[in-house]
């Protein structure tokens, strides 16, 4: 059933007007605003983006429980998907995560937390986890997929291994959210802490969508060419 999903003849601006969080999807496609009255298809063609991939990502980010049918899936170019994932890794690491961490460090700087040091350590450790997670994908998984696409035989790896080892970046974020919501001292007023939390929520949401893009789409596509 495709009722209510985004489609290629829609105006691209309407996507963002419907779901502003797609603003976090755009950098992965190297897409800026300046959308004018162009349709999704026009924008994608102008920028050399796969329309099917762009719509898939936007739909996945916007509609709960959306899962593409086999026909939609077969139109997704793997190289474009990997490029998108790699670009969003960069955005996560260079823009999103530093912003979340900065907000949390601000809380410590304003003096309302006496456990600042541990919180700093927690953030630093999490950042290292994210770097390692993305690094593994870019240095092991993506090259493997590229070699598959080139028709080179690789016997020492398959995508099942990635599926098994896909570590969970979600748990730590969830823990941090819990602690900030439940146990911040009263000196830490809502005005001081809400921005940190809102950024944390947005980051967590985007990361979970990024993960489902990898686990639902990337793995499914690679399994097809492994056979």
């Amino acid at each position: 059933m495709n009722h209510g999903l985004f489609y290629e003849k829609m105006k691209a601006a309407d996507l963002v007007l419907t779901n502003y969080r797609l603003l976090f999807v755009f950098p992965g496609f190297g897409l800026n605003l300046d959308l004018g009255e162009s349709t999704v298809k026009q924008i994608c063609e102008k920028k050399g983006i796969s329309t099917s991939l762009f719509l898939l990502v936007c739909n996945l980010y916007t509609f709960d429980g959306y899962s593409p049918d086999t026909n939609t899936l077969s139109q997704i170019p793997l190289t474009d998907l990997m490029r998108y994932l790699k670009n969003s890794h960069k955005d996560f690491l260079e823009n999103r995560l530093p912003k979340v961490i900065d907000r949390i460090l601000n809380l410590i700087d304003c003096g309302c937390l006496k456990n600042g040091e541990i919180l700093v350590k927690f953030c630093e450790k999490y950042k290292q986890e994210v770097i390692a997670h993305f690094g593994y994908e870019e240095q092991v998984v993506f090259p493997y997929i590229r070699s598959l696409l080139d028709g080179e035989k690789t016997t020492n790896y398959n995508i099942k291994e990635y599926e098994r080892n896909h570590s969970d970046l979600d748990d730590a974020l969830n823990d941090l959210k819990n602690i900030l919501i439940k146990y911040l001292p009263p000196e830490c007023t809502i005005e001081k802490c809400r921005d940190a939390l809102i950024d944390l929520f947005l980051f967590e949401f985007d990361l979970s969508k990024h993960t489902s893009l990898e686990e639902q789409i990337l793995i499914a596509l690679v399994e097809r060419i492994e056979k």
Binding site: I118, L119, F122, Y126, D171, A172, N174, D175, N178, I179
Partner: peptide, 11 residues
């Protein structure tokens, strides 16, 4: 509601 060791340390 906290799962990781780092999270429990914070808690």
């Amino acid at each position: 509601g906290i799962k990781t060791v780092a999270g429990l340390t914070l808690y």
